[in-house]
């Protein structure tokens, strides 16, 4: 029962948030709706028993990415974006040409075919939601896997992050004349 309720609530959160991101015209509101959607995704991870991934989702996206996005929007003057016409959407009611319409139509048909005939049957066949909410410990397993089987990916991503850190420091450094 709890599993189903948690699934329904988090699915509703993620879908409503995603719709809100697209529907709203204010870019700050879009960031907040994105936050709602990301929290919903964290809830979906919880229903699958991946508690560590859910907490990581919260730490990385809620604590980092959304705040950074809000910062970037604010510092680049995106607050009055509903008044300006930055992306030319209002100027050209018929966005795109015949070529883009054909490409968009074909990709829409392909995507709907894949979703309806390939993915949805698998979703309905899938295991029911864990109703007892009794999970195994995942932290130890993730830790062991990170330093044994996936040690190369782990090290490469840490070097990448270090590079990003050093690069940010170099860019942000005041220039000496």
């Amino acid at each position: 029962m709890f599993g189903n309720i948690l699934f329904l609530v988090s699915a509703l959160f993620s879908v409503l948030g995603a719709v809100g991101v697209v529907a709203t015209k204010n870019i700050m509101h879009a960031c907040v709706y994105l936050l709602m959607s990301l929290i919903g995704v964290a809830g979906l991870y919880l229903t699958l028993g991946a508690d560590f991934v859910a907490a990581t989702q919260l730490v990385v996206y809620v604590g980092g990415v959304v705040i950074l996005m809000v910062f970037a929007v604010m510092l680049t003057g995106g607050a009055d974006s509903q008044k300006s016409n930055r992306f030319g959407i209002k100027k050209t009611p018929m966005m795109g040409s015949i070529g883009t319409y054909i490409a968009g139509g074909i990709s829409a048909i392909l995507a709907s075919y894949i979703v309806i005939f390939r993915l949805l049957p698998k979703v309905f066949e899938a295991q029911p939601v864990n109703s007892t909410m009794a999970f195994d410990k995942t932290v130890e397993k993730i830790g062991m896997l990170l330093v044994s089987d996936h040690v190369l990916a782990f090290e490469i991503s840490s070097v990448l992050l270090l590079g990003a850190l050093v690069g940010a420091a170099v860019i942000a450094r005041p220039k000496r004349n």
């Binding site: 990581t56 919260l58 730490v59 809620v62 995942t138 932290v139």
Partner: peptide
């Protein structure tokens, strides 16, 4: 929670 401290950091970033 098994991830107690990590959960705390995550949720308090709100």
């Amino acid at each position: 929670l098994d991830i107690g401290l990590f959960f705390l950091i995550g949720i308090s970033s709100l």
